[in-house]
Write a protein that binds this DNA or RNA. Sequence first.
RNA 1: GGAGGGGUCGCAUAGUGGUCUAGUGCGGUCGAUUGGAAAUCGGCUAUAACCGCAAGGUUAUCGAGGGUUCAAAUCCCUCCCCCUCUGCCA
Length: 414
Amino acid sequence: MLDIKFVRENVELVKKGVTAKGYDAGVVDEVLKLDLKKRGLIKEIEEIRAQRNIAASQKDIEKGKEIKQKLQKLEPDLENVEKEFLEVFGKIPNLPSDKAPVGKGEKENVEVKKWGEPTKFDFEPLDHLELGKRLGILDFETGAKVAGSQFYFLYGDGARLELALSMYVFDKLSKEGFLPVITPDLAKSRYYLGTGYMPKGDEAQTYTIEDEDLGLIATAEVTLAGSHADEVIPEDVLPLKYVGCSHCFRKEAGAYGKYSKGLYRVHQFSKTEMFIYCKPEDSDKLHESILKMEESIYQELGLPYRVLEMCTGDLGAMAARKFDIEAWMPGRNDYGEITSTSNCTDYQARNLNIKYKKKNGETEYVHMLNGTAVVMSRVPVAILENFQTKDGSVVIPKVLQKWMGKEKIESKNG
RNA sequence: GGAGGGGUCGCAUAGUGGUCUAGUGCGGUCGAUUGGAAAUCGGCUAUAACCGCAAGGUUAUCGAGGGUUCAAAUCCCUCCCCCUCUGCCA
């Protein structure tokens, strides 16, 4: 959430930001109205409570009874107003950064960089599904049998590739000061709803556990952000840098179609995610450093990619600024998203109540940043499709060979 | 899963209905003392919201949420977490 004081004092600015994100600026007026109502009630109730405390200390039972009745009338009002306030206030998204390009949607995202060229073949290339099947490393049929459509089994070098990618980024990023973490794959609703992943408004993405306040996480961002909830972090340990590995679960309701076939869109995948807690003044710089790390990973893997900066209309609720990397995927004959890095400024920190303590004793909300390191579904799509050879084998990127113990994936893999 | 014990102001502890505006010790901090220090003595020592130009004031918070009461850290209910024992289990 935003800072209500800031909203009170910068109404027009907030409305402008909300509009740029494609949200209805009417909620801002609604919030201010509720805020006023809430404060009026708080004042009234606190005065009565002060009287109650006096009556109690004087053991004035009659007066106390009288006061109790007054409070019993007013307190539920306040409760309702507060609830309503939070509900509406939560609808106001984080404001976009000044640096984010203004635009309505996906089409107005800005390509800020291109690295490499789309791969050319002197033979008819296969898509990753066909390749995976022929190599015996990827099996959606058995996935469907056991868990349903859009689940898959990885065998042999398919399974090794996932672990090799994980080891590679853990290794690379720990040299950059990121602490490797394996997080729980489930989280309480406070975290999987409030924190992290609320794509385009609805929450139907999350698998939940019956009769428990638990859901399967859609990304380790949820658990990494939750891990410091309600904490005050000493200034000198910032920035805190994590690279978390988890399984990710998404219902992806209605998201079928040729464009997202195979591993591109699945219900379960593994992902390593960078996550940084930092001081507000450092967040821009660190956000760029995450993007640089991501680029460095894909350059080392040798995958052609482009970098898109999201326009205001495509930032989502949490982010003030966001970059996606899209890798070339011959099977789609197009670029496909493989990373996304967001600067959520203090918006998430306010939701989760995460502050830091300055040397002078003051506390302030931290800034929170996230960025994909490697997503084990889509990156293998790009690897298989870009590095396939005429004989049907796939060349393993150099940086992964150490972890795979071989240079090529061939059909007679074990 | 079962049985027992516990969760109090940074840490440790006291507190079983009103005198709790939560005591004490430790730590921290400021000051006194000192040539300087130790020791000693004294002050201060949370977070948030609301009112106020400010000084300041008020309210809330004793794991969380409900309830009883004029009044709850204290009584009742539900839940969470930690420890010990125990069962099952990779």
